[in-house]
Design a protein around this nucleic acid. Structure first.
Lengths: 212, 212
DNA sequence: GTCTATATCCTGATAGAC
DNA sequence: GTCTATCAGGATATAGAC
């Protein structure tokens, strides 16, 4: 049954998400969530029994969002070069709009406890096979079409690809003071980033003349 | 002046580092640090005035360790292919021995506050120019020797390279349940990882016939 | 230098009036 | 459904005896 106050519930969820993303589990306080959501602290416990339940709900949403943002960035049915290019465009667009998402997920993983594991397995049930298989499959098709070299283990390429994209958003706070003359937050740099990841990775897979 | 009890201080620092890495700032409790270090809780405040000071000291050590582990993985004076290969060997060895280090740093960055910024700038003063310049320089030399193509912005390659290495250790808890048939913790997979990163990235930079 | 006991504060959660 | 007041537990930090 859809409640009328689903609206308020949804509003609390959105605010709580922001606070949890900013502060993490231990750092986020129910009082701050209540204040920023413009509701009473007791209301949080009325709608969501505990901090734990509120957090878990949000964690699941975000994990799923992250996995889907990878899957949704694939546009099959093109040449491999086009698919790679489109993926870089779409995925960077998603990351640009959610720059703190990878950091939040990384933090949750670093706590490493039961919760992260439980949530991951829960999320994978809703998504399973989709995100990984869609990508692996695309690589196998490109290989069958003779566009790229045979891959021992396609997962290795996915790790390199996703890592090349995500790491920039994770490390930006370190890298920025290392190279003060570069504006890592400019659109121009991100455009260049997309172009360069393509350059770096494409020729590693492209069919070469003198391949054994 | 070097104190006699520097030994105990050092011991506390090592234990505290483990706890902070495991639990983060908010999650780590002084009581647990004291217990695991086998000392009284009051002693922590005797040696280090506050939790804040203890944490900051450790944060600086770890940031510096991370930056230096990148710089130390470079062995100049080889061909570019050899330098890349050696870097991958050394850096993966360091990460294998400190698999939680990237996660800890990522978490600290995600808190995003003054502290991270302050510590980063402090650490960069001790390291500045070394880690970034040593790598950029190597790329420029390889370019001058005609081994690799001209690079618009060498930093872009560094981001792709470091990201390809580090992301695996960050994302392993997510990726493992996605591909249950693969053992991501095996030495064999990490060996393959080194080999494949080389394959993925080397041919993106290697001088090509039909360039541009 | 070391330890016990305690002060002070903060947090999640709930009871109970409206 | 909403709000105020409050409980119970746990955290950092310190005082003070030895």
């Amino acid at each position: 049954m859809v409640e009328i106050n689903t609206q308020k519930e949804e509003q609390i969820l959105q605010i709580a998400m922001q606070v949890f993303v900013e502060k993490g589990w231990h750092g986020a306080k129910m009082q701050e969530i209540a204040d920023r959501a413009g509701v009473n602290k007791a209301m949080l416990h009325y709608y969501f029994r505990s901090k734990e339940r509120l957090y878990t709900a949000i964690l699941e949403m975000l994990f799923l969002k992250f996995l889907n943002s990878i899957a949704d960035s694939f546009t099959p049915g093109q040449t491999f070069a086009e698919t790679l290019q489109l993926f870089l465009d779409h995925f960077h667009e998603k990351l640009k709009n959610n720059p703190t998402l990878p950091l939040f997920i990384a933090r949750e993983l670093s706590e490493g406890g039961d919760r992260a594991n439980r949530v991951i397995r829960q999320v994978l049930k809703q998504n399973e096979l989709r995100t990984p298989q869609i990508m692996i499959n695309e690589l196998k098709l490109a290989q069958a079409r003779g566009e790229i070299i045979p891959l021992e283990e396609p997962v290795q390429f996915l790790l390199t690809l996703i890592g090349s994209c995500v790491y920039f958003f994770l490390a930006r706070p370190i890298v920025q003071p290392l190279f003060p003359e570069i504006d890592f937050h400019s659109d121009a740099f991100i455009e260049q980033r997309k172009k360069m990841i393509f350059e770096h990775l494409y020729y590693g897979l492209k069919k070469r003349e003198n391949y054994p």
